[in-house]
Design a protein around this nucleic acid. Structure first.
Length: 638
RNA sequence: GGUCGUGUAGUUCAGUUGGGUAGAAUAUCGGCCUGUCACGCCGAGGGUCGCGGGUUCGAGUCCCGUCGCGACCGCCA
């Protein structure tokens, strides 16, 4: 027998018992006549004691041990004379009667402890050693608990888990596919699924009206700390549902997970934030709502007079968008359709800013030419030094943020105002900005100007940076929300066509369907994202279940009938045989686990992750194939 | 494809204007130590300064190229 107990379970109540433990030697502390050995398994650490006087034979054996040796020890559980309150087993130790080396070990290249001394690269190379460490083991156990919890909850809700194929047909929409060559069908390839999207829709056609799967997905795109080439989704689909039905079920799942795993509860239902509002108030489609600091608009105007580099087709949509925006301004009713009442947008105050500020003839070029001017209020930051402001300027001018410069206005406690544009605007104008933005004495107003989309994004980045600097992102606070009403399609200048923002099966909002023919760029999707603390945790949509509407969608996306038939023919066919209304959602499981683990990277919630370049540095994959293998597959490397 | 950062002992890092045999901590090995749990004390070994080229009397340090790693942008739902 290798063990009667684990290294984490023995307590004072076990004192006097003879036990056998097996595990790894974590650390040894040797004295003249006494040796302490910390024995570790995934349940904890227990101290073994060897005494030269009471058992010289075993004492000698213990001196031969080294770090990470695998050993079996039998002995008596004894109360410690010096207890260690920092460890669960700290009240006891094992007086060892016999120790046996099950397997010796080379000295590992880094320390296998709570905080390792090894760097990322080294730990990835010896991943199996890194995973012996408690933090990694906690992460993987958390992952396990969450997976169990998801399955349990969805099972109770009537979902059934169905496996879908991993070798499927390549669909060039969206992300690039990983492909698998077929030996039996030379020159042809399978693809690994970016998600089981079409299969889960077919399951709805087949009548499995509540489907779920925790499933690997594959995308051949460049990686980030929160993106791996293969990752795991909680994939779900439901039939005979509307958006609200889906949001309710998965808000339920979200609350269940938070409650079961983190013991965090939420009051009421999650905020539903329209995409346009998310963009205009937070400069992001995944806003971090742990803090306010909304973006305040000073002015938006038609900037078509600017650069003439736009393509013909782009011009069309751009004009259409600008027209809508202008309309919003004139009617002082910027919020469309579904905005809840709490959404007060600054545009409605525009008149007060415009009264005292001529943004188009101030003599300040950055403002006079700007399509959009907006800012955020850094509360209580009027005391910021020149150096701090310069650093913020550098931050927004980084190519990743892309602003041309940063304008600041300090509203000092004594009522005076100091800004970087004092030359161009008088005190009344600057005071007017405070009225519009809601800045109070002691606040710092940070303003960016330029193209509307880019400037909002930059303001969003600046908002997050200020949130970090002012410690407004509390790791123990969780603010989930639904972002809804995404645009259905996005125009791409390079290829001069529309692309589905979600995917080509996303249904338009019913009231927008007529606009598909006139102005697809204005159509809203019946889609939703779950966002928590600025992280996109999941997203989904109501799907198109009507073959005619799907055909129309393919037209909008510029597919010929032949292309649509070639790529998605089987789905269109299936829809001819009675497809129920349906919709679904998929969650990024790795991201969700890393959120719960309090990590910024998903790597450490994945047992065997890949690095930035998509390489497995432990296996050293991907790797070359033999000539023989290639020949069999009919593949030639150029 | 791009921006930024980084590469020095097994490991984590320091190394000034370009100037003595390239250091510290930790790990490893040896010695001493009977209550440690970051044990302590003494000692030892350990270096292709990522790689290639250049400038120089002299390069870890400066220049050019290249490779690896990380974060981000593009890309990606």
């Amino acid at each position: 027998m290798y063990r009667t107990n684990t290294c984490g379970e023995l307590r004072l109540s076990h004192a006097g018992q003879t036990v056998t433990l097996s595990g790894w030697v974590q650390k040894m502390r040797e004295f003249g006549g006494m040796t302490f050995v910390d024995l570790r398994d995934r349940y904890g650490i227990t101290q073994l004691v060897f005494n030269m006087e009471t058992n010289p034979e075993q004492f000698k054996l213990a001196q031969k041990l080294g770090r990470e040796f695998v050993v079996r020890a039998t002995g008596v559980v004894a109360e410690r004379s010096n207890k260690n309150p920092n460890m669960p087993t700290g009240d006891i130790e094992i007086h060892v009667d016999s120790i046996e080396i099950l397997n010796a070990a080379e000295t590992p290249p880094f320390t296998i402890e709570e905080n390792s001394d090894g760097g990322d690269e080294l730990r990835m190379k010896y991943r199996y050693l890194d995973m012996r460490r408690a933090p990694l083991q906690r992460n993987l156990m958390l992952r396990h608990r969450m997976a169990q919890s998801v399955r349990h909850y969805l099972d109770l809700q009537g979902f059934i888990e169905v496996e879908t194929p991993v070798m499927i047909k390549s669909t060039p929409e969206g992300a690039r596919d990983f492909v698998v060559p077929s030996r039996m069908n030379q020159g042809q390839f399978y693809a690994l699924p970016q998600s089981p999207q079409m299969f889960k829709q077919l399951l709805m056609v087949s009548g499995y009206d509540r489907y779920m799967q925790i499933v690997k997905c594959f995308r051949d795109e460049d990686l980030r700390a929160d993106r791996q080439p293969e990752f795991t989704q909680i994939d779900c689909e439901m039939a005979f549902v509307e958006q609200q039905d889906i949001l309710e079920v998965f808000e339920g799942l979200t609350k269940h997970l938070f409650n079961e795993v983190l013991q965090v509860q939420f009051e009421g239902s999650f905020l539903k934030l329209p995409w346009e509002q998310a963009m205009s108030e937070y400069g992001s489609d995944k806003p971090d709502l742990r803090f306010e600091m909304k973006i305040k608009e000073l002015v938006t105007r038609n900037a078509n007079r600017a650069e003439g580099e736009l393509s013909e087709a782009k011009h069309e949509t751009r004009k259409a968008e600008d027209e809508t925006r202008d309309t919003k301004h004139e009617t002082r009713n910027p919020e469309e359709r579904s905005l809840p009442s709490h959404a007060s947008r600054v545009t409605s105050h525009d008149s007060s800013a415009s009264r005292v500020t001529r943004f188009d003839s101030s003599g300040f070029p950055a403002f006079d030419d700007a399509e959009y001017i907006g800012g955020i209020i850094a509360a209580g930051c009027a005391e910021y030094t020149r150096k701090q402001l310069d650093e913020l300027t550098d931050f927004v001018k980084k190519p990743q943020v892309g602003a041309k410069g940063l304008i600041y206005v300090k509203y000092n406690m004594d009522g005076t105002i100091k800004s970087s544009v004092d030359k161009f605007f008088d005190a009344a104008a600057l005071q007017g900005w405070a009225e519009v933005t809601g800045a109070k004495p002691g606040d710092l107003l940070l303003i960016l100007a330029g193209k509307r989309d880019k400037t909002l994004k930059a303001l969003g980045d600046l908002r997050l940076e200020m949130g970090r600097q002012l410690n407004l992102m509390d790791k123990n606070k969780y603010v989930p929300l639904w972002v809804v009403d995404f645009p259905l399609v996005e125009w791409d200048e390079e290829t001069a066509r529309f692309y589905a923002m979600h995917h080509p099966f996303t249904a338009p909002k019913p009231e927008d369907i007529p606009m598909l023919d006139i102005d697809p760029g204005q159509v809203h999707a019946n889609a939703y994202d779950l966002v928590i603390n600025g992280i996109e945790i999941g997203g989904g949509s109501i799907r198109i279940h009507d073959a005619g509407l799907q055909k129309k969608m393919f037209e909008v996306l510029g597919f010929t009938d032949e292309q649509a038939e070639y790529r998605f023919g089987f789905l269109m066919n299936a829809f001819k045989y009675g497809a129920p209304p349906h919709g679904g959602i998929a969650f990024g499981f790795d991201r969700w686990v890393s959120l719960f683990a309090g990590l910024n990277s998903i790597r450490d919630v994945i047992a065997f992750p890949k690095n930035n370049q998509g390489r497995d540095v432990m296996q050293d994959s991907p790797s070359n194939l033999d000539e023989e293998q290639l020949k069999e597959l009919g593949i030639k490397i150029s």
